[in-house]
Design a protein around this nucleic acid. Structure first.
Length: 424
DNA sequence: TCTGGGGTCCTAGGACCC
DNA sequence: TCTGGGGTCCTAGGACCC
C-alpha cells in the first residue's frame, strides 16, 4: 500500500496558522503578481470562487461577503511543508516529497491491520504540531492513493483518512470519481473521453487496454493500469536531476521600453544562475523569451523567443547576463506593450565535466578568480539578503517588480518577522 | 486596467550518419 | 513494376502535473 498525504487548501491553511482572524471566512491566496486565485478556503469555494478567478473579478464579487486575499508567500509555505514532511517521516519513513503540499509514503513494511490507525494518529499529530489540516489517502498505487485522498477529503472529514483496502471500496471510489479528476487525465483527454460517453474513473477502467493506448498513448495506458492496481509509477526517494531551470515573471505593469525589460531579465538570469551553481552545474544553452499579454484585445500581440548556444558551458552570472541581453536585443521590437520576460537555462551538466572549446582557452587564472568571487557573492547574498551584491545591469529601481500587495510575514524563517509576531 | 510560475514526458517529422 | 535499412539527434507541438 501507498499513502498520499496532502494538505487541505495548503496556502490558505498556512496563512491561517499565523493569522487566526482569517479562519472561518472566505478568502484565497493569489498567484504571483496578485493575478488570480490559486488556493481557496472552503468558504470561498462555497460562494463560487473558482480556481484561477482573476483578482479584479473577485473584487466585483466582494458584495457576496467579506473576502480576504493574500499574495503568495512561498518562503512560508516551503518551511511549513518542511515541518510537515518531518513529522510524516517519523511515522512513515519511506517518503517521496512530491510537491510543495503532498508526499507519498510506501507502507510495505507495515502490518496491514495497523495502517489505518497509524494514519489517523499521524494526521492528528500534524494538525496539533503545525496547525495545518491534511488528509491521507491509502491505496495500492499512486493513482489510487490520489483518489483515496479525494474521498478522504469529501467523505471522511472527521478522521481525514480513507483506506482503500477492498475491491468494494475501490469500485465505489472509481464510480464516485469524475473522469477529469483522475490524476494523469487532463482537460484535453477528459473532453475526448466524455464525448464518447465515459464519465467516471470506473467507465475508464472498464475500457479495453488497446483502445486506451490508441486514444491516449502510453501515458494514458499507464494511468489505466495504475487504476487496475498495477504499480507503474515508482516511488522516487531522491529528486531526479533537473533538465532545465527557468525564471520568468509578469511585470507589474505593461512595459514598452527596452531598458526596464533588460533590468528584469538580468535579475532573472542572476537568480537562475545561483540555482545552477547550488546544484553544481553549468549550462550550455539558454532560452530567452519575451511576450505581450495573451489576453490582449485592443493591442497587438507578439511572442518571441531565442535559443542561444554557449560556446563553453558556464554558470558565471556575468557571462550569462551578457548572452541573455544580446539575445533579448535581437527579439525586442519597439511598439508593443510587453507583459513578461523570462529565461530558461538548458543543457545542464555537472561543473566538473565542462568541455573546452576549440576556439577559447581553457579556464585561465582570471576565470578561476571570477569563480572564487562568485562563491563569495553567493555567500554574502544568502547571509544578507538576495541581490545585496549585484551586477550593475540589474539596476536598483525594480520598477517592473511583481505586485505583492497582500504579502504576509515570513513567520517561521525571518528573524525580524518572528520578533513582530511575538510583539503582536 | 487588471488573468501565475515551474516543471516533465511523449510523439512525429526532418536532417543527418554509414 | 520494383530504387535499403538501421540508426541518432534535434525540434515543435501537445499533453500532463503542482
Amino acid at each position: 500500500m501507498l499513502a498520499l498525504i496532502d494538505s487541505n487548501n495548503f496556502y490558505v491553511s498556512a496563512e491561517r496558522v499565523f493569522q487566526p482572524a482569517l479562519r472561518g471566512r472566505p478568502g484565497c491566496v493569489l498567484s504571483n503578481n496578485d493575478g488570480c486565485a490559486i488556493s481557496r478556503s472552503n468558504e470561498a469555494k462555497e460562494i463560487g470562487i473558482k480556481m484561477g478567478t482573476p483578482y479584479f473579478a473577485m473584487q466585483e464579487q466582494q458584495q457576496l461577503g467579506e473576502i480576504w486575499w493574500r499574495s503568495s508567500n512561498y518562503t512560508l509555505y516551503q518551511d511549513m511543508m518542511r515541518r510537515i514532511t518531518g513529522i510524516v517521516r517519523d511515522t512513515f519513513p519511506d517518503q517521496e516529497i512530491y510537491s510543495i503540499d503532498e508526499c507519498y509514503c510506501d507502507l510495505s513494511s507495515f502490518a496491514y491491520h495497523d495502517i489505518e490507525k497509524q494514519a489517523i494518529l499521524l494526521r492528528s499529530k500534524i494538525l496539533q504540531y503545525t496547525g495545518v489540516p491534511v488528509c491521507i489517502g491509502i491505496g495500492a498505487t499512486k493513482t489510487l492513493a490520489k483518489i483515496a485522498n479525494k474521498i478522504a477529503k469529501k467523505e471522511h472529514a472527521s478522521t481525514g483518512v480513507f483506506f482503500m483496502d477492498t475491491q468494494e471500496k475501490i469500485d465505489y471510489s472509481l464510480q464516485e470519481t469524475a473522469i477529469e479528476d483522475v490524476w494523469g487525465i487532463g482537460p484535453r483527454y477528459a473532453i475526448k473521453l466524455i464525448k464518447q460517453g465515459f464519465y467516471t474513473a470506473l467507465d475508464f477502467v472498464n475500457l479495453p487496454e488497446d483502445y486506451v493506448l490508441k486514444l491516449m498513448t502510453i501515458q494514458g495506458r499507464r494511468t489505466w493500469r495504475e487504476l487496475q492496481g498495477e504499480r507503474c509509477i515508482p516511488m522516487e526517494y531522491e529528486p531526479p536531476a533537473k533538465e532545465g531551470i527557468s525564471t520568468g515573471r509578469s511585470f507589474c505593469k505593461m512595459e514598452t521600453e527596452l531598458a526596464p525589460i533588460e533590468e528584469a531579465l538580468a535579475f532573472y538570469v542572476a537568480n537562475t544562475a545561483v540555482k545552477l551553481r547550488n546544484q553544481q552545474c553549468v549550462c550550455s544553452r539558454m532560452f530567452v523569451y519575451l511576450q505581450t499579454s495573451q489576453f490582449a484585445v485592443v493591442h497587438r500581440k507578439y511572442c518571441a523567443e531565442i535559443d542561444l548556444k554557449l560556446l563553453v558551458a558556464t554558470a558565471e552570472t556575468g557571462k550569462l547576463i551578457k548572452e541573455a541581453l544580446a539575445g533579448l536585443r535581437k527579439i525586442y521590437k519597439p511598439g508593443f506593450r510587453y507583459q513578461k520576460v523570462g529565461v530558461e537555462l538548458r543543457g545542464l551538466i555537472p561543473d566538473t565535466q565542462v568541455q573546452a572549446s576549440l576556439f577559447e582557452a581553457v579556464p585561465d587564472a582570471k576565470e578561476l578568480k571570477m569563480q572564487q568571487a562568485l562563491k563569495v557573492i553567493d555567500q554574502l547574498n544568502s547571509s544578507y539578503g538576495r541581490d545585496m551584491v549585484r551586477y550593475g545591469t540589474m539596476g536598483f529601481s525594480k520598477s517592473w517588480a511583481m505586485r505583492q500587495e497582500f504579502l504576509s510575514k515570513r513567520y517561521t524563517t525571518r528573524i525580524e518577522d518572528v520578533i513582530k509576531v511575538k510583539a503582536y
